[in-house]
Design a protein around this nucleic acid. Structure first.
Lengths: 197, 197, 197, 197
DNA sequence: CATGAATGAGAGTTCATTCAT
DNA sequence: GATGAATGAACTCTCATTCAT
């Protein structure tokens, strides 16, 4: 596949992403993607065999773009900002994603992983989750050292934060959580770590 | 609707529940339910017009059966057991439901509410969630009074518990969370409340 | 499936037979049969799942109708006509079938059994062939007893007749054998048995 | 067409032959041949417009290669071996071809001529058949002269041999005739000619 | 000559939904 | 009420064929 083909593939993935963000995973048909791309039915099959295959590549694409892009969070980390600031930034990032309904793959991702079970050790969601827990644990432990945080069980706290965020995420899709409520919970999570004795 | 009809309707809902528990919401067709019930295609339409309608009634049925049934949790509440015991029982109930993959409507419920948005004030999930938060808040507040718990923000803590449980629930469906991990998180939630100064 | 359905099934098979006789096996699609029957696409699938399934039933149907019908051949057998007459009648029947191009399943049958290999012991074609060999062998043996035929190896002669007929049959489809040539070969086969020493 | 093109065309035909031998005629698509040759889709169309065209050239190629090659049969003929030996050799050659399922175009040929009717005077199969009949007739007549064979109707006998071989050939494809059965029939054909009075 | 991306027609198949009985 | 045959829309997937490069 030449350079031109690679560009077309990227184009299809971009359009497909929009479709998935809009309609979730299960409702999306090859025909939908064909129409979003304004290409022929057979044309799509030159690049992908199924919506499943497309979705997996969309997920990878997303990861790539996120890690490539310099966001405030990674910048703060590289600049050795205070742990509490970095954690606050991380939670802000999460909030943005949570509240952005139109452009998010959240629903599609859940639908996809409901329908397609992966063994734990190859499950991309789990890998992402575990990585995030480790980062947060490190932040909390650092913060404890500098006296910013008080926490006896940084790993437990990190997990709790991630579970709660996951809960917020799914609830934002199923019950339409408002930004105010997300703020409130994020505040709660921070407060717990800052709690004076 | 005569008594006979009501019985048939209940029968359909029971069978449909099994189908939804088995396959989620989106994959279930009217045909699937017809086959599970071993009735005629037209026959099903006498009672229900769509899988959506059936699922909503299955959800109501579920609520009814749960509130009707005397479980250890409601029993403990009525017997004025210590708040910490009641909360522990509540969390145990949640754990059971979380770990029971085969018989649970969790996945179907998520799929359903992804696809069918309800305004917040009529959203059955939200109503359930809010009710649970209130109960937990009350328990924590009581526990604080009796000195069982230490907590400055019972409402916040209650919400955090529910968000974390929601996170566990969705993750158990998408990443296959083990019982051990559920236990660990539940323990964490309890410990936070019991934390000595 | 009630009586009415049985009638419709028979109707579909009858129409399908015409299609197969007209176009062979491989070129026939479910759509072709749908159109020949003037029913809906889905309607056909209520009765049959594939052209293969339909064709097998068409073959069975054919056998049934043939054995049911009182033809001159079976009549002669039951009336204890001379063996040479009966054999001649049998060959006349074969000739009729050979020369009837428009209405015959010959081509479709070959195409079908090229594409669908059956184990020898379940192969319908083989069963038919073996049965025919036995009948002819018996006729020849009887004819030898009555002095009508001269033949040292009735089984071998019977097989030779059937192989030659099979050759004629396939050649009539691929090279367009004329009736005259079929006659000539049939005459040859008879002459061999009548050959004076 | 330059020499290079001629070589490429021959290469395509060689590969196509393998494909036809493997899968018959009807199931073979232009795509299959493209893939077998590992050339581009458009590239194939530079040389051939359809599988039909390709198959016809494969058939011609086959004839060419066979007549070119010095086989035991043609050798025996040129050496004036006894007619009975030559006929026996011819039948052995036929047997080899009959029993060789993997490498043979038999099925493809039948499928092709079922689907593509040629007027008798241009039908390649018929030409081949008639040529073979003539050769066998000559052999038998010669054998009769030398006293090797007894036969009143050499032409009829030659035709019968060819029809029976055709019958064996098609049956080997549709019912899986064993080598033993082919041997038995060939023996029968020879015996008929050697029959003592 | 040669490539291979692109198109679009067409086959298979499944179901929601209707309706005569 | 209840049945299940029937319809037709929608989706998946495959290829023959073309054409810009």
């Amino acid at each position: 596949m030449g350079e031109k083909s690679a560009r077309k593939k990227a184009f299809i993935l971009k359009k497909a992403r929009e479709v998935f963000a809009d309609r979730g995973f299960k409702d999306v048909t090859m025909k939908d993607i064909v129409e979003a791309c304004q290409i022929s039915r057979g044309g799509l099959y030159l690049y992908f065999d199924s919506t499943k295959e497309i979705f997996l590549e969309v997920l990878n694409m997303k990861d790539a773009s996120e890690s490539g892009e310099e966001n405030v969070f990674t910048k703060a980390v590289s600049e050795n900002a205070p742990s509490s600031d970095i954690l606050a930034l991380f939670l802000q990032e999460q909030k943005k994603e949570l509240c952005n309904q139109t452009d998010s793959l959240t629903m599609a991702t859940y639908e996809f992983f409901f329908a397609n079970k992966f063994p734990q050790n190859e499950n991309p969601l789990k890998a992402q989750f575990d990585a995030a827990v480790q980062i947060i644990e490190k932040l909390i432990a650092d913060g404890v050292k500098t006296g910013e945080f008080i926490c006896e069980d940084p790993k437990g706290a990190a997990r709790n934060i991630m579970y709660a965020l996951e809960g917020l995420r799914v609830m934002s899709q199923t019950m339409g959580i408002t930004e105010k409520k997300v703020n409130r919970e994020i505040l709660y999570l921070m407060k717990e770590l800052l709690k004076e004795v």
